[in-house]
Design a protein around this nucleic acid. Structure first.
Lengths: 349, 349
DNA sequence: TCGTTTCACTGAACCGATTCACTGAATCGA
DNA sequence: TCGATTCAGTGAATCGGTTCAGTGAAACGA
């Protein structure tokens, strides 16, 4: 991030050349200019003349006007659950890459963990400013998603909505959760605390429910603790949780961001990982290799999901009329084991 | 990031109600509807009637049409140097927060470290799709910035451009660099390697030049090594650098992302930090507290810079005609010392 | 040589809002 | 009671492109 001194410059914009100016300069009609610039229905000589006049005047087509007449802005709304989450940040980056390949730009908005805010932003963006929407719905059961889904192509990531669809990408988080819990169980852990991003007032959230069910099945004593998405907030949560007994022997963090918070808290409290405390994450973010010990984490195929989501959305935006189960993509999570988990102290030896 | 199964849903959009539909439904003219919805020049009774018809029809104003007639989209372009950089990601988040307070949305684009790409994206966005631009120019000396700066309000962060301005935010990276280098010198280091984000073909980049000059002044032996912005790439670079002699006694990373790479490489090669190798970062990202040992890093006021930048840009977008030195904000960097630096081995004891 | 096709281009409609200039009716003060 | 003002609402212009239908001239085939 380090650069030279930063400067803010604001300039009073000069009046910009319109297609009429180019038409006047060349003695043609605006229609002819429009055609010529796209190289259709015009002689090569005229095209050159128009091109020359356009560069002379510094003309570039007004994107808004074009969007109005084409009914297409080339913009896609990306609604992040929380831009403070390292995994979300990385996912947005990957989405941008994928959408860019289809000539689409991202309008990024941050729901900041609040379902109402997410819906409000979605409504705002849906007013034909964007051609489509990518969203990880915080409250997928909410009915207003149906309206939004009917207005424009929507790609959901994380949880499915109840509305009508024309394609699906699925990755099975339940399986990812099982992978970790079974691994911890196999090491001998019986008490594990799950640190999960806090989601207000949605008691039936699939991921959390999955955690409890899998725990039940294995005979694990699972405690669920909510945390904010940021590293700083997760540090506080983990600090509070690890600061008073009973201490769990393992912590499963439902994002690598939260795992970072657990590392910071464990270090501050003097709990060595994995000696006193096993930690597992979710996202398999590159940060996992920089932590000491390196973090074991669930790889859910962020890159593949982002690619699939952008491809499907791009197809829908381009007007592919396919309807039904087309475009269904399934990604299987896997557990990347590194050095942050070990048998619990009492069981060891 | 972990949620339930992810689903992509694409829906054939139904025809959306326009202002004419509402006009027809109420027996009024489109103009009257436009006024009524904004509560001006209409009787309370009519406003209610229009409001009712609008919700009945599910009408919301077409943002593109409004943008065309208002000459304002409410969109701001944010050009990131590299969205893989943790600091940049965090900065974008902060910008989004700041711009959101002014009712502006972000169009985020990633230059991916390439100056040409950055300029191309800037040009693309400048076509009146966005009302303004925030950018950390990779190649501030390039002349095409002048054209862009004349077209729309531009806020630069990181390096100043050569064009005309109406306001400035400055943070002094040279000072930040000095802070670190002086600290390392004071500890007894004489050989320090600087890991800096790679910027192609700009030999006179202020930050790098600053590093060399400050090193000269102190009598430090400074080696500059370029690295990509991502943690993974930085790990490779650091691995190569630390894998063969001569080993520096200290590494100064010009972003915390790169510092993460240095940590990963040092761990892989068995160089304890700060015992064998001191490491310092830049950004003071929250990740610094999760690393072991906690990372010493330069705090350059990301939050303040983001706030100042969004305020200035918002003011310019709103049409504040102030020109000249108004809005000049200066942020002073500081060094946050944690546990990643210590005297070099040979000097110790 | 005549009728048809192609070509290059034009005028006007259109996308969906906002806004200006105007009108007829109601209200006001004197 | 009359002229002036206010008020609610209308029609048309506007933003800056794209696109449809049409036109005159040139090229073409038989």
């Amino acid at each position: 991030m380090a650069g030279g001194p930063a400067t803010v410059r604001i300039v009073v914009p000069r009046r910009r050349a319109t297609i009429k100016d180019v038409a006047a300069a060349t003695g043609l009609s605006p229609a002819a200019v429009s055609y010529a610039l796209r190289g259709v229905q015009t002689s090569a000589e005229t095209q050159e003349r128009v091109q020359a006049a356009a560069t002379e005047l510094g003309y570039t087509a007004n994107a808004v006007a074009r969007a109005l007449s084409q009914g297409r802005t080339g913009l896609v709304g990306v609604l992040s659950r929380s831009l403070l989450d390292l995994g979300e940040q990385r996912f947005v980056e990957a989405l941008g890459r994928g959408l860019g390949e289809h000539g689409l730009q991202m309008v990024v908005a941050d729901a900041d963990g609040e379902p109402e805010r997410e819906r409000e932003l979605a409504r705002q963006l849906a007013d034909q400013l964007v051609d489509g929407l990518v969203v990880s719905p915080l409250d997928p059961s909410d009915e207003s998603w149906t309206d939004i889904g009917e207005m424009l192509p929507v790609v959901t990531v994380g949880d499915a909505l109840a509305g009508p669809t024309v394609g699906e990408v699925v990755f099975d988080n339940r399986a990812g959760v099982s992978l970790v819990l079974e691994h911890l169980y196999g090491l001998g852990h019986r008490d594990v605390t799950v640190l999960t991003p806090s989601l207000p007032s949605t008691p039936d959230r699939p991921a959390e429910r999955g955690v409890l069910e899998v725990g039940d099945r294995l005979g694990l004593d699972v405690t669920v603790v909510n945390s904010e998405h940021s590293i700083a907030a997760a540090t506080d949560t983990a600090h509070a949780m690890l600061g008073r007994p009973p201490l769990p022997t393992a912590v499963f963090c439902l994002s690598d961001s939260i795992a970072c918070g657990a590392y910071a808290a464990a270090a501050a409290l003097g709990h060595p990982i994995p000696g006193h405390l096993s930690v597992a994450g979710y996202d398999n973010h590159a940060i996992g290799n920089a932590l000491a010990p390196a973090l074991s984490s669930v790889e859910w195929g962020m890159a593949d999901v982002a690619a699939a989501a952008s491809d499907l959305l791009a197809a829908a935006v381009a007007g592919e009329p396919r309807r039904g189960a087309r475009g269904k993509v399934r990604v299987t999570p896997s557990l990347v084991l590194r050095a942050s988990t070990a048998p619990p102290r009492t069981v060891r030896g």
